[in-house]
Design a protein around this nucleic acid. Structure first.
Length: 481
RNA sequence: CGCGGGAUGGAGCAGUGGUAGCUCGUCAGGCUCAUAACCUGAAGGUCGCGGGUUCGAGUCCCGCUCCCGCAACCA
């Protein structure tokens, strides 16, 4: 009874390329990768998407400062983000979309046209607050007591500008109904609650274009040379343009329409992913996302924000260089809270690394394989082909930490088993009995290795290789630091 | 003002109303297959504060304090 597995789609948010990749995005990318690998092992056809968000004001400004063309500027950053794939041990087949890709630009324009045809886009005058002192537009969040903090003695000028708007306000009821009908749409619950409360308080239409004369680095608005799209509107469309949309059939039909869809995002993206983007999909008469998973933030010591000025920024490149890919994955998957903010310091990292990777799984592999190598004539043939239901349930609920905890509880059980059964001394007195114990241990190690595949792919294959060769690994899985 | 989160032994965290757990660290034993690794035991907490509901609350309700994030045309 081979049951047909549903196609599975998973994506990260697209990081904005105005800075080097940070550890928060690394976590999002790695977590999505774990789910993608897991679904693949379960036999699903998986489409895994990531990429870079490359339009907008900051990149336009950045390019001007450097005196290069915007495209050249974002090209260099896009390469850095592509480098994350090998660095973080991401699945080979991940799709990498850039919002400057020709196909994406066309898709964004098509998406705009459809929303427009459906009556959800309109043009209106909108008032901006302008500080003559700075010669800049000021947003509400920049103001202190309603004044520019740099020029508090000057009154802000109100200037009028014509922009296109998206009728978000029309989707309040539709979104609330959608939330009602899909009780597990956002994980975790408290984030879902947060967005529901936000939508209940009412939605205001948001601006989706910029005057080209002020900021030209964006997707041209169809049928109006004077505007480019506001970066959010274009970037969100990547989740379907990566599937070939608007071309019908193919991957879009298979994954977005027929399959299960999951979007990973940081908590700063809750509103955009679970309310703005969902309203946009509704406006275009396209299916909504299946699940949104919201991560917490990585902080510095004591829960303070990571910042260059505090010198507490953890760079994923440095961590991988010293400790390896799996070590970084391990920390971000198990030592970091699934949904709350968590600190990442090198001290905490090193402690967890030595305790659980060196002394835990690494040492366990060595002690078992040494016994096997010395006492068994040939490799133990093991055929593990399914996950423990606890592990599977945890991952189906995106609780990677809980799934990883399960693996380490098995490590601990095996260490206790060795202590209690003492195969190393039994084998000296009763060779057959001792061998049986050792075979059992190798089999249990194989189970651990199997479950480790989506979590720590490198370590999983080293364990498998050691078992197949019936040899203790030549170099430890994890070097003591 | 408002919305959301957090406050649990030295540190980081789990905890579904019913004897307060896990990892690290500390201390004391044990083992020797293993990367001075592993196993067992111990010390250490009035679960932010004050009320309430309940036979019983870290867990539910009310009030308060402190910390973090959001507060939309920034991305």
């Amino acid at each position: 009874m081979a049951e047909e597995k549903k196609p599975f789609y998973i994506t990260t948010t697209l990081p904005y390329v105005n800075a080097d990749p940070h550890v928060g995005f690394a976590m999002e990318f790695i977590r999505a990768d774990v789910i993608a690998r897991f679904k693949k092992l379960l036999g699903h056809d998986v489409f895994f998407n990531t990429g870079t968000d490359e339009h907008g004001q900051k990149l336009f400004d950045g390019a001007q400062e450097k005196g290069v063309a915007p495209q050249e500027f974002v090209d260099s950053f896009a390469e850095k983000f592509k480098d994350l794939k090998p660095l973080l041990g991401i699945s080979e087949d991940v799709h990498f979309i850039r919002t400057t890709d020709e196909h994406h630009v066309r898709a964004a324009q098509e998406f705009w046209k459809i929303c427009d045809q459906n009556g959800y886009i309109y043009k209106k005058e909108y008032k901006i607050k302008y500080c003559v002192g700075c010669e800049l537009e000021k947003t509400e969040s920049e103001l202190v007591d309603g004044k520019c903090p740099i020029h508090p003695n000057r009154e802000l000028e109100i200037r009028e500008e014509e922009n296109y708007f998206f009728k978000w306000s029309e989707f309040q009821e539709k979104l609330l109904t959608f939330y009602e009908e899909n009780p597990s749409f956002v994980t975790p619950d408290f984030r879902y609650n947060e967005i529901k409360e936000f939508v209940k308080r009412g939605l205001e239409d948001f601006s989706i274009s910029r005057l080209k004369e002020k900021m030209s680095w964006g997707v041209p608005v169809p049928g109006d040379d004077g505007h480019v799209m506001y970066v959010w509107f274009d970037a969100l469309v990547n989740y379907i343009s990566t599937l070939g949309w608007p071309d019908n059939g193919g991957n879009f039909e298979k994954f977005w329409v027929e399959g299960d869809t999951v979007q990973y995002a940081g908590k700063d993206n809750l509103r955009q992913q679970s309310a703005m983007w969902q309203a946009m999909l509704m406006a275009a008469h396209l299916p909504n996302t299946g699940n949104i998973v919201i991560n917490g933030f990585i902080t510095g010591d004591g829960g303070v924000k990571m910042s260059k000025s505090l010198g507490n920024v953890v760079n994923p490149y440095d961590v991988v260089e010293e400790y390896g890919t799996d070590a970084l994955r391990y920390y971000l998957l198990r030592e970091v809270s699934s949904y709350e903010d968590s600190p990442f310091t090198m001290e905490l990292f090193k402690q967890a690394y030595n305790a659980n990777l060196v002394n835990g799984i690494g040492n366990l592999t060595n002690r078992i394989m040494k016994l096997a190598e010395d006492n068994l004539e040939e490799p133990v043939s093991v055929e593990v082909n399914c996950f423990d239901s606890k592990f599977e349930n945890a991952l189906n609920n995106f609780d990677i930490k809980k799934a990883t905890d399960f693996i380490w509880s098995k490590v601990s059980e095996l260490d206790s088993f060795i202590e209690n059964e003492k195969p190393f001394s039994v084998v000296k007195e009763d060779k057959e009995k001792g061998r049986k114990l050792i075979v059992e241990m190798v089999q249990n190690l194989a189970v651990i290795g199997y479950h480790l595949q989506p979590i720590l792919p490198e370590a999983a294959s080293k364990i498998r290789e050691a078992i197949e060769a019936n040899k203790k690994p030549e170099t430890p899985l994890f070097e003591r630091k």
